[in-house]
Every structure is written in C-alpha cells, then in structure tokens.
Simulated scan of single mutants.
Amino acid sequence: MSTAERWLKKLGYKAQKHHKDIYMDGHECKDVMEYQNKFLKVMESLEHLMIQYDMEGKPIYPKLQPGEKVHHAIAHDESGFHMNDQQSISWLAEG
C-alpha cells in the first residue's frame, strides 16, 4: 500500500478526503428528456422482437420473420453506483 501511495504522489496525484455531497438529479433537463424519448421510441420499435412474460412469469416468444433475431433487454439497478461507499479518501490528479 505504501509503495502504491508513493508512486501516486510521484505521478502527481494527491490524497483528498471527501464527504457526501448533495446529488442533483438531471432527469428533468431538456437534453435528458429528449434522449429518454428517443430511447423509448427505439425500445418500442424493438419490442416485437423481445420475449414477453405472462402474469405467471412464463415466457411468450416472439413470432420472428426470416432474418430477425430475438432481442434481449438487459437492465441493471443502481447498486453499481454505491461501490466503495465506505472509502473516505480519493487519489485525484490536479484539476
């Protein structure tokens, strides 16, 4: 650990203590809303190629035309954004 810290200092990085700040969500910004609308239109156009699920969770496979392939929507929750939450120091370059 001490060797890595010495190298980080030689490379111009500085250890900086950080704290939780207020997070401002930009989901209502004009450009974000435009992107969301474009994304939703693309997803809607691909929906007929995706596996749907009935109320019991059983898959309903799409009826594909020749040359079409099944599309799978892959999503994630925001848990990835909470990695390293317990860290109180970051090594940052100038600027």
Rank of each mutant, 00 (worst) to 15 (best):
Y23S: 03
E47S: 04
Y23P: 02
V32T: 08
A15E: 14
H18V: 13
H18K: 07
H76C: 01
K10V: 14
G80P: 11
Y23Q: 04
H71L: 12
L11F: 13
E34K: 11
K14I: 07
I89H: 01
S2I: 08
L46G: 01
Q86F: 14
K17L: 14
D54Q: 08
F39V: 10
I60M: 07
Y23E: 05
R6G: 05
H18T: 12
M43H: 09
I74C: 12
E34S: 05
A93K: 13
Y13M: 10
F81Q: 13
A93F: 04
N84P: 05
D31R: 07
I51R: 02
D54T: 03
D85N: 07
S2K: 08
M43C: 11
V32D: 06
Q52A: 10
H71W: 07
K58W: 03
L92Y: 14
M33T: 11
H72M: 03
H76A: 00
G95M: 05
K17D: 15
I89P: 00
M55I: 09
Y23L: 06
H72L: 11
D85Q: 07
L40P: 02
E5A: 00
A93L: 11
N84D: 13
K58L: 03
M33S: 12
E44C: 03
Y61F: 06
I60V: 02
H76F: 02
E28V: 03
P66I: 02
I60D: 01
I89K: 00
Q86G: 07
E56K: 08
D31C: 04
F81M: 12
H48D: 13
L11R: 15
E47D: 08
I60P: 02
I22V: 13
K14S: 09
W91F: 12
E28M: 10
C29E: 15
M1E: 04
E47F: 06
G12N: 15
V42C: 12
D54Y: 04
P62N: 01
Q65S: 07
F81K: 05
P59C: 06
K30P: 07
G95F: 08
Y35F: 09
G80Y: 14
K41I: 11
P62R: 01
K58I: 00
I51D: 02
A15Q: 12
K63S: 08
H18Y: 09
D21L: 09
E5Y: 01
L40T: 09
M55K: 05
M43F: 06
K41D: 15
G57T: 00
S90K: 11
N37C: 07
K69H: 12
E56R: 02
K9E: 15
A15L: 06
E47C: 04
M55N: 02
K14A: 09
C29M: 04
A15K: 13
Q16C: 14
